[in-house]
């Protein structure tokens, strides 16, 4: 699946998007896989209360299932308007 990062999450991890092939059931499983990779990922995901997630471009919870999902995005709370 494609994993996208926005705003300071993108800056902290150091890239806007990447392909991740992992056998994960939920968003939380994906977070754990990413955190285990490198310190920059671990730092970006250290406080999940500061993050929001979208699954196939719809806001979702961290326990959302990922079966059949093509795109997951992580970002801070939105500041539009």
């Amino acid at each position: 699946m494609d994993v996208l990062y926005f705003a300071w999450v993108r800056e902290r991890i150091g890239l806007p998007r990447e392909k991740v092939d992992a056998d994960v059931a939920t968003v939380m499983d994906l977070v754990e896989v990413l955190r285990a990779r490198e310190d920059r990922y671990d730092a970006a995901f250290s406080d999940l209360s500061a993050l929001r997630v979208a699954v196939d471009q719809q806001l979702a919870d961290f326990d959302a299932p990922l079966a059949g999902v093509r795109e997951v995005a992580f970002f801070p709370p939105m500041t539009g308007g």
């Binding site: 926005f6 970002f75 939105m78 500041t79 539009g80 308007g81």
Partner: peptide, 14 residues
Amino acid sequence: LMDYLKSRAPFWKR
């Protein structure tokens, strides 16, 4: 519209 634009539309200001 304004209330939802503020915190439910994926924009980030810097």
